[in-house]
Design a protein around this nucleic acid. Structure first.
Lengths: 190, 190
DNA sequence: AGATGACCAAAATTGTTTTTCGGTCAATAA
DNA sequence: TTATTGACCGAAAAACAATTTTGGTCATCT
C-alpha cells in the first residue's frame, strides 16, 4: 500500500475528529500504522500535512459545487445553487465544521489562516463564473472581483449571520433567493 | 455638581481609554472624586454603568448620522452617507474602536454583547429609513428588515472586511458607492 | 439620609512544576 | 544503499499553587 496515502487518510480522519491543535503527529502515525519519522519524509511539518488535507477538502467542495450546476440554467440559478452548496459544507463537512469551531474558539493561527484561504478560493471561483457569464453576454460587464466578493459576503450574512441576531431562526432558502433576486441579481443582467 | 453626571463622565473617560475589563470601579470612583459606594447608588453594577455609557455613544452616532443626511437628496445618497458615517465611527470614536478591539482580542462577553446590540440598533435605524422611503414612494415595497440587514452587511464587508483579504488596501468611497449603486440601490428604486 | 472606604469572597494573575508534543537523527531493516 | 523507525530533545503547553486584584456590600460617619 501507498504509505503517503495511508498518512493522508489517517490525518484527514484525525483532523476531522479532533481538529488541528488536538491532532498529534504521534496520533496520525499510529492511525496510519507508520513510524512518526515516516510522516516527515512526505510532509515537511504538521502544517504542511494540514494544508494537504485542506486542499483535498477544497477540491471536494469545488466538485460538489460543480455538481450543483445545471447546464443551461440562468446565472442566477446556478450562482445561487453553487453558493448554497458551498455554504452548506460549513455545517455538513465534518472537517470544515470542526475548523470553523476551532478558529472561533481556540483561535489557532494555522486554522484561521487556512479558513481565510478557503474563502478567498471561493470568491475567486465565483469570480471566474461571473466572468464567463459576462463573456457569454448573460451579464453586463462589471468589476467581477468586487461583485464576487459582495455576493459571497451577502450569502454568508444571510445564511450564517442572520441566525445569530435572530434567535437562531434561519432564513428559508426561498426567502434568501427571493431577496437576492430582487436586489443584486437583477441588476447584473445584461 | 451632579454626582451622577460626574460618574458618567469619569466612566466614559475610563472605558474609552482602557476598555471595559481594564476599567475598575475604584478607578472610576477616583476619577469622579466620589466614594466607590456612591457609584452603586446610581448604577446597579459595572455592566449597567457600561450600558449607560454605550447608550450615550449610540445617541452620538445617531446624531452624527442624521447630520450626514441631506434634505431632499435621494435615498441612495443619504443611505450611503449615513452608513459611511456610522462605519467611520468604528475607527474614529475612541470608545467604539476600543470596544471592537477588546471584543476581538479579549473576548469580554459584556463587550461582545453590547457590540451586537449596537449593530442591531444600526440595522433597525436603516430599516426605518427604508420604510420611510417606501412610504414616500421613492422605493418600491420590500422586506425592509432583510434589506436593511443586507445593506448593513454589504457596507461592513466593503469597508471593514475587504482590507483584511487584500493587504489592507482599503476600497475608495467612490468605488464602494459605484458598486452598490450598480447592484443593490438601483434595484430598490420604485 | 446620603456618602464613604474598609472589608470580603470570587476571580484573575503570577509563579512554579510537570507533562506533552513537534521535530530530529542514529540505529535498524529491507 | 535507501527507507523506516522510535527513543530522544528542547520548547511550549498544561496543571497546579500561591498571591493579588476587583466587583460589590454595609457598618460607620458625616
Amino acid at each position: 500500500m501507498d504509505r503517503r496515502q495511508e498518512i493522508l487518510e489517517a490525518a484527514a480522519k484525525s483532523f476531522s475528529l479532533f481538529g488541528y491543535k488536538a491532532t498529534t503527529m504521534d496520533q496520525v502515525a499510529k492511525i496510519a500504522n507508520v513510524g512518526k519519522g515516516t510522516i516527515y519524509t512526505f510532509f515537511a511539518n504538521k502544517e504542511e500535512l494540514f494544508n494537504a488535507i485542506v486542499l483535498q477538502m477544497v477540491e471536494e467542495m469545488r466538485a460538489a459545487s460543480d455538481a450543483a450546476t445545471v447546464e443551461g440554467a440562468s446565472f442566477e440559478q446556478n450562482a445561487h445553487a453553487r453558493l448554497m452548496q458551498m455554504l452548506k459544507f460549513r455545517e455538513t463537512h465534518q472537517l470544515y465544521a470542526k475548523l470553523i469551531d476551532e478558529g472561533k474558539e481556540l483561535r489557532t493561527p494555522a486554522v484561521i489562516e487556512v479558513l481565510a484561504e478557503i474563502e478567498d478560493e471561493i470568491v475567486s471561483y465565483i469570480k471566474t463564473k461571473i466572468e464567463r457569464a459576462i463573456d457569454k453576454g448573460e451579464l453586463k460587464p462589471c468589476d467581477s472581483e468586487l461583485v464576487a466578493f459582495l455576493l459571497f459576503k451577502s450569502y454568508m450574512a444571510l445564511v450564517v449571520d442572520w441566525g445569530k441576531t435572530h434567535q437562531d431562526e434561519e432564513l428559508s432558502e426561498e426567502r434568501i433567493a427571493g431577496l437576492l433576486r430582487s436586489t443584486i441579481f437583477t441588476s447584473l443582467l445584461a
